[in-house]
Amino acid sequence: MPVSIKANRDGFRRCGIAHSDQWVEHPDGRFTSEEIEILSADTMLQVKITKKPAAPATPPSPGPQGDAGPGDQPPSPGPQGDAGSGDQPPSPDKGKTSKKGGK
């Protein structure tokens, strides 16, 4: 479990760490259970043991459109047609001709 520690005096050392006078959260596994007992018993330190949030008892509810199964997928767009079909604006070089051959 993560442990948050705040020292009454900045730089106070215990269990191999100089503790801050601001709350610092240490990750799960940073201290052994014996070290947590030592830290908690020290009057120069304030120690909070943070419990991990419990997993939800029920699965999360589907989004506003519901749970889409394989047959519920919207149809995929067909092959792209001519740029003039209104689907997409024409590309800037569409319709321009190159002047090759000297004419």
Score class of each variant (00 low, 15 high):
Pro64Ala: 14
Pro79Thr: 07
Ser85Cys: 09
Gln80Ser: 12
Phe31Trp: 15
Asp72Ser: 11
Ala83Tyr: 13
Leu39Gln: 07
Ser98Asp: 15
Gly69Leu: 10
Ile17Asn: 05
Ala57Phe: 04
Lys94Gly: 00
Gln65Arg: 13
Ile38Val: 15
Thr50Phe: 00
Ser85Pro: 03
Pro56Tyr: 03
Ser85Asp: 15
Ala41Trp: 02
Lys94Ala: 12
Lys51Leu: 13
Ser4Arg: 14
Ala54Leu: 10
Ala57Pro: 03
Lys48Tyr: 10
Pro2Asn: 12
Thr58Ala: 08
Lys103Pro: 12
Pro79Asp: 09
Ser61Gly: 09
Pro92Ser: 10
Ile49Val: 15
Ala83Met: 01
Pro27Met: 02
Arg14Tyr: 00
Arg9Cys: 02
Ala55Thr: 08
Gly95Ala: 05
Gly63Ala: 12
Ala18Ile: 02
Lys52Leu: 09
Pro75Leu: 11
Ala83Thr: 05
Val3Thr: 15
Ile36Met: 08
Ala55Tyr: 01
Gly102Glu: 10
Lys103Cys: 07
Gln88Asp: 09
Ser91Pro: 01
Arg13Gly: 03
Thr97Lys: 15
Asp67Gly: 00
Pro90Ala: 04
Pro75Arg: 10
Gly95Thr: 04
Met44Asp: 13
Arg14Ile: 03
Glu25Tyr: 00
Gly84Leu: 13
Ala83Gln: 12
Phe12Ile: 02
Gly16Leu: 04
Ala7Leu: 02
Arg9Trp: 01
Gly66Ser: 07
Asp21His: 09
Arg14Phe: 01
Ser85Ala: 10
Lys94Cys: 02
Val3Arg: 01
Thr43Ala: 13
Pro77Met: 08
Asn8Pro: 00
Glu35Trp: 08
Ser76Glu: 15
Pro90Gln: 04
Asp87His: 09
Lys51Pro: 03
Phe31Asn: 05
Gly84Ile: 05
Ile38Trp: 05
Glu35Lys: 07
Pro2Gln: 15
Gln46Gly: 00
Gln80Met: 12
Asp72Glu: 06
Lys52Trp: 01
Lys99Gln: 13
Ser33Thr: 14
Thr43Met: 02
Lys52Phe: 03
Ala83Asn: 01
Gly71His: 06
Arg13Met: 11
Asp42Ile: 01
Gly78Ser: 08
Gln46Trp: 01
Ala7Pro: 00
Val3Gly: 00
Ile36Gln: 04
Asp21Trp: 05
Gly81His: 02
Asp21Pro: 02
Trp23Lys: 05
Asp82Arg: 06
Val24Tyr: 05
Thr43Lys: 12
Lys100Ser: 14
Pro70Ser: 05
Pro77Gly: 07
Gln80His: 06
Ala68Pro: 06
Pro92Trp: 05
Gln73Lys: 10
Asp42Gly: 01
Pro89Asp: 07
Val47Trp: 06
Ala18Phe: 08
Pro53Gln: 11
Arg9Val: 11
Gly86Thr: 02
Gly95Lys: 06
Lys51Ser: 14
Asp28Arg: 12
Leu45Met: 01
Pro60Asp: 14
Pro64Tyr: 06
Glu34Asn: 12
Val3Gln: 01
Asp93Ala: 14
Gly101Asn: 12
Ser98His: 12
Ile49Phe: 00
Lys100Glu: 14
Ser40Arg: 11
Ser76His: 07
Ser76Leu: 15
Thr50Val: 09
Ser61Pro: 02
Ser98Arg: 15
Ala41Tyr: 03
Pro2Met: 09
Lys51Thr: 15
Pro59Gly: 05
Pro56Asp: 15
Gln88Ile: 11
His26Asp: 07
Asp87Lys: 09
Ser76Trp: 11
Ile49Thr: 14
Leu45Tyr: 07
Ser33Arg: 12
Asn8Gly: 14
Gly81Ile: 02
Ile5Lys: 01
